[in-house]
Design a protein around this nucleic acid. Structure first.
Lengths: 341, 341
DNA sequence: TTAACAATTGACAGCGCTGTCATTTTTTTA
DNA sequence: TAAAAAAATGACAGCGCTGTCAATTGTTAA
C-alpha cells in the first residue's frame, strides 16, 4: 500500500519529524541525514498526503484558479499551465469559475478562500483588473498573483505577470506600416478591458513613430466578438459617406478579425490583395479562416505556469521572489496581410 | 473562526459522533436529534472539513475529471457542470488533463487515483471510449461514470450517460429531407470516434426511412476539423469528375460545417440558396458564421451535472441508482439550410 | 411488569502529518 | 579540556473527522 511518513522514517532510521523536515526543505538537518531520508523517500516512492498536510499544518497546500470565462481556449490553456506547476510542487489546484458581473462575487470568493483554507490565488482578466476585488482578497491571509495586460504592475497589491499587449500591438501595426499601409483601421475590443486599451496605445504609438496622421474615423468600437468584427468592417469599408477607406484593419482579437474577414468577403473585397486584416491572440480561429490570419501569439500555458510558480514561491515563503515577469506576444505573419498597393 | 464538528456538537448538546452521523446522513439517529443537530449546523454555518474527512474516513470525498482536450468549449462546459454538482454535494473535484494517445496513460491515471485516494472518475470521449483503459480503472476500487455517444451502454463496466447522436443525426437529416433534399452529402469526423459512427448511422437511417438511395460518393472522410470541411466541400462541389453534386451537406460537427461554408463561398456557391449546410454541436462557431448554422445542440453542462450526480450517488452508496440517462441533441434550425430547388 | 431485544448515542483511537518544545549531539569558546 | 552555545533530532500533542465498539435508552414480547 501507499507509503506514509512512518514508513520512510523507519526505513531511514530517523524520526518522522526529521522526514517532515526533509520533505519540507527545512534547515537544521545535517546533509548526511538529509540524503539518507531522501534515499528512503525515493525507494518507497513516498508522496506526502495532502489531506494530512492541510489538516495538520498551519499552512495550506491548496491554491485556486478563479476565472470568469471570456474564452474557453484561454481558460483551458491557463488552467493546464497552472496545473502543471502545481503538480510539480505538490500543490492541489481548486478550480473556481465565477461571474465577474455578479455583485456578490467578492463575498463568494472570500468565503471559498476561507472555507477551503486556500493559500494562494491566480487571477486572470477580467477578474485581475478589478482593484476592489483584488484588494479584498489580498486583505485576507492569501497570496495573490495576477495576470494582466501592461508593461508594469499597476499597483503594489500583488505580484503580477504582465503581458505587454502594447508593445505587441505596436509591432503588429508596424508590420502593416512596413507593408506600405497608411490608412490602418482599428476595431477595438471591450473598452473596459485593459488589453483593449493597451492594444490601442500600441497602435497609436506605431502610427506616431512613423509620422502617420491619426484618423479618428478609422477607429471602431467593438467588443471582442465576431459580430463586432463583421459590423465594424462593414462600416469601415462602406462606400457611402465620406470616410476614408482603410487599406488595413487591426482587429483587437482573432474573432473580430474573423468577422472582418467575413464582412470583406460579403463585400467582395479580396484579402489580402485589397485589404489586409490582422488579428491578435493566435486563437484556433486564426487558423480556421481563409486566408489564415496574421496575428500575435502569447504563450498562455507558459504564462500560467510562470504565474503559478510565482504564487507557489510566495506561498512557501521562499525568498520574496519579486521577479515580475513580462511577456510580449509575438507577431505571426500568415496570409491575411500583404503589401499595400 | 470556522466552526468545527466540536462546535456543532456543543451547540446541539450531543457528541461529535452524532453530528457526524447527521451530516453523513446515516441511519440510527432519532428524528428529534437530527433536527437539533441540523439547527446547530445551520446556525453555525458549519461545513465539514474535506481534508479531515479524507484523512479520517475509509471513503474519500474527491472525484476527478479526466479529460483529453478535443475541444476547449466542450471541456469547459463539462468541467463546470461537474463542478456544480460536486459543490452541491460537498465533494472536491480534481482536474486531470491527459493525452489519450500516450501509451502510459493507464498507468498515469491509475497512479493518480491511488495517490490522491479518488473515489470516482468522470470520463468523456475519447477516454470514455477506450475499453482497456476503462477496465483498468474499474478494476481499482474506484467508481466510474462515462459520457458516451450511443443509445445504450456498450458494456457493463460502468454506468454511462448516453448522448444519442444517432437519433439527433437522423432528425437533422430528416430536416434536410423535409426541405426537399435528396442528394445529401456526409462529411465525417474522426472515424475512431463513436460520435462519428453514430451520426453516420443516423444519417443512413434517415435516408432509408425516406427511401432515398444511398450514394457512396457523397460520403467524405474527415476529422472534425475546419480544414477537412473545406477540402470535403471542395471535393463534393467540384464540377470535374462525374460525381453527383449534393444539394445539402451534413457536416459531422460545426467546425467542418464552417469549413464547408467557407469552401462554398470560395466557389461562389451561395448558402443556403444553392446548397444547404448543417453542422452538429451548436458550438460558438455555429453562430459566428454567415449564414448562421443549422445544427444540433446538446446541453453539455447538464449532461455533465447529471453524470456527476450519478457518480456521487455511486460513491455514497446511496441506492444503486441504475438510472442511465440519455440525451438527444436537439435540432436548431438557423439560416444555413433551406428548401431545395 | 420485566426480561430480552433493538435503536440510539457516545467514548475513544487513530488517519498522516506539522508545530512545539525538550533532548541529544556537535561545535565553539574560554 | 570543560563549559557554553549552537545545531540537529526526537517525543508527543493535536488538526477535524470517521470507524469501532461499548454504554445507554427505548421498545417489544412474555
Amino acid at each position: 500500500m501507499k507509503a506514509t511518513i512512518n514508513d520512510v522514517a523507519k526505513q531511514a532510521g530517523v524520526s518522522i519529524k526529521t522526514v517532515s523536515r526533509v520533505i519540507n526543505n527545512e534547515t537544521s538537518v545535517r546533509q548526511l541525514t538529509r540524503e539518507k531520508v531522501q534515499l528512503a523517500v525515493d525507494e518507497l516512492n513516498y508522496q506526502p498526503n495532502l489531506s494530512a498536510r492541510n489538516l495538520a499544518g498551519a499552512k495550506s497546500f491548496s491554491v485556486a484558479y478563479i476565472y470568469d470565462n471570456p474564452n474557453a481556449y484561454y481558460i483551458i490553456d491557463m488552467q493546464e499551465g497552472i496545473l502543471s506547476a502545481c503538480k510539480k510542487q505538490g500543490f492541489e489546484l481548486l478550480i473556481h469559475p465565477c461571474d465577474a458581473k455578479n455583485e456578490n462575487i467578492t463575498e463568494e470568493v472570500v468565503n471559498m478562500v476561507k472555507h477551503a483554507r486556500i493559500a494562494g490565488l491566480i487571477l486572470t482578466p477580467p477578474l485581475s483588473e478589478m482593484p476592489e476585488f483584488v484588494k479584498s482578497l489580498v486583505d485576507l491571509d492569501v497570496k495573490v498573483v495576477r495576470i494582466m495586460s501592461g508593461d508594469v504592475a499597476p499597483d503594489e497589491l500583488s505580484p503580477c505577470v504582465m503581458v505587454n499587449d502594447r508593445e505587441a500591438a505596436q509591432t503588429i501595426t508596424q508590420h502593416l506600416i512596413d507593408l506600405g499601409h497608411k490608412d490602418i483601421a482599428f476595431i477595438a475590443g471591450d473598452a473596459k478591458h485593459m488589453s483593449t486599451i493597451e492594444r490601442y496605445k500600441g497602435y497609436r504609438k506605431a502610427l506616431k513613430a512613423s509620422n502617420i496622421d491619426f484618423n479618428k474615423s478609422l477607429i471602431i468600437e467593438g467588443d471582442y466578438s465576431f459580430d463586432s468584427g463583421v459590423s465594424g468592417a462593414k462600416q469601415l469599408m462602406s462606400t457611402e459617406g465620406n470616410n476614408t477607406r482603410p487599406t488595413a484593419i487591426f482587429s483587437c482579437n482573432d474573432e473580430i478579425a474573423a468577422g472582418a474577414l467575413f464582412a470583406a468577403r460579403l463585400m467582395n473585397i479580396s484579402i489580402p490583395e485589397q485589404l489586409s486584416i490582422v488579428g491578435f491572440e493566435n486563437s484556433p480561429f486564426s487558423r480556421q479562416t481563409w486566408p489564415k490570419l496574421t496575428t500575435a501569439d502569447q504563450p498562455n500555458g507558459q504564462i500560467a505556469e510562470d504565474a503559478a510558480n510565482l504564487l507557489l514561491s510566495q506561498v512557501r515563503k521562499q525568498k520574496n521572489q519579486v521577479t515580475i515577469s513580462q511577456y510580449v506576444p509575438k507577431l505571426i505573419v500568415r496570409d491575411s496581410s500583404a503589401q499595400c498597393n
